[in-house]
Design a protein around this nucleic acid. Structure first.
Lengths: 159, 159
DNA sequence: AAGCTTGGTGTTATAACATATCAAGCAGAA
DNA sequence: TTCTGCTTGATATGTTATAACACCAAGCTT
C-alpha cells in the first residue's frame, strides 16, 4: 500500500501516470498546469531523487525554459502548494510526491549517501507530539518528519 | 516531565543551570568548552528562541568574539554534535536543547508567528516510519520531527 | 628545550539557496 | 473590447553555509 521507494519499478509508466493525474487534478481545480510547471514535475519524477532548485533550474535552462532562479522557485511553489511535490527540509531540496491522489502527512526516508528518497505517511498528531501540542495549547498546522540514514543499496558501500 | 516551553519560568536560573551542565559534561568527556562555544550556547539559552547563525554571529561580533561566518558555524557544529543545541531544519536555525542531560530524539513545536520553539521527545522509530524502514531495509540514523503552527500566545493575534 | 601533533581560531573568498520588485504577456469574464 | 487576475521575464539582492589556508596554543616525545 504505502509506497516505499528503494526498489525497481516501471519508471516510464509511473512518470506518465503521475503527470496524467496532475493534469486531471489541475483541470478539476481550475489550476494552470503550465509548460514550466509540468516540466518541473516531470524532471522530479524522472530523477526520482531529491533535487535542489538550482539543479532543476539548470535542466530548464538547458531547454530554454528560463534561466533565472525565480522560474524554478515559482514552479516549485506551485507544485508544493498543490501537493504534487514535497520539500525536503533537511536537504533544501524537492521531490515528487509519491501519493499525489490523496491528502496526507508525508514522512521521508532519506539516504545520506545517494539522496534517494522514499515517501511514506504518518499520523503523527495522535502520538506524543500531538499530546504535547494539545496540553500546551499549540495549534499544529504542518508536520515535518524526515529520517536520514542509509538505504539498502548503500548500506554496504558507505560507512 | 517533558518540557513544553510556552510558559513562564525562572530564566536566569535555567540559563545558569544549563551552562553548568554543559561545563560538567565537557569536563567529563574532555571536550573543550571554549569561550566562543560557551557564549554561543549562552546566547541561545538567553533568547529561548530559534536563532539563525547570522543572528548569533552579529551578537558575537558586537562583543569582539569574531565576525566571520565560520566562527558561528564552528561553534554551532560543536554544540549540535554534542547535543547542547538542536538545529531546526525548517527555519535553518538553532535552539538550545531543553533536555541536555540525556540522549533523546527531539521533536519541536515551532510557532510560525513568534518563532518560539518548544522541545519535546518522540520515539518515532516504533511507529509507521520505523515499520517502513525495517520492511524496506533502510537504516535510520537520525530523525527530524518538527511541527509548525501557532503557539498559545499567538493564536489570537495572527490569522 | 626543540620538535611534533592535534585541535581551535582568524580571515578571505565563494558556493548554495531564496526572494523582492517591477514590467510585460496572456487568458477568461464582463 | 476592456478589465482583471494570474503567469512569466528580468534584474538585483538577500540569506545561509562551506572551502581553504595561515596561525597559535596545549600537550606529548625525544
Amino acid at each position: 500500500m504505502s509506497t516505499v521507494g528503494f526498489r525497481q519499478h516501471d519508471h516510464t509508466h509511473c512518470v506518465h501516470t503521475a503527470l496524467a493525474q496532475a493534469d486531471a487534478k489541475c483541470k478539476a481545480q481550475r489550476l494552470q498546469f503550465t509548460p514550466v510547471r509540468r516540466r518541473v514535475l516531470e524532471i522530479l519524477l524522472e530523477k526520482h531523487r531529491a533535487m535542489g532548485a538550482y539543479d532543476i533550474l539548470s535542466v530548464l535552462s538547458a531547454e530554454g525554459m528560463g534561466s533565472q532562479p525565480p522560474v524554478a522557485y515559482r514552479a516549485l511553489d506551485f507544485l508544493v502548494q498543490n501537493g504534487f511535490v514535497h520539500r525536503i527540509e533537511q536537504l533544501n531540496a524537492y521531490t515528487a510526491c509519491a501519493h499525489p491522489t490523496h491528502d496526507h502527512i508525508p514522512a521521508f526516508l532519506i539516504c545520506r549517501s545517494c539522496k534517494a528518497v522514499a515517501e511514506t505517511e504518518t499520523e503523527l498528531t495522535q502520538g506524543r507530539l500531538g499530546a504535547a501540542a494539545s496540553t500546551s495549547g499549540f495549534q499544529i498546522e504542518r508536520v515535518v518528519v524526515e529520517a536520514e540514514g542509509l538505504c539498502p543499496e548503500c548500506i554496504g558501500d558507505q560507512p
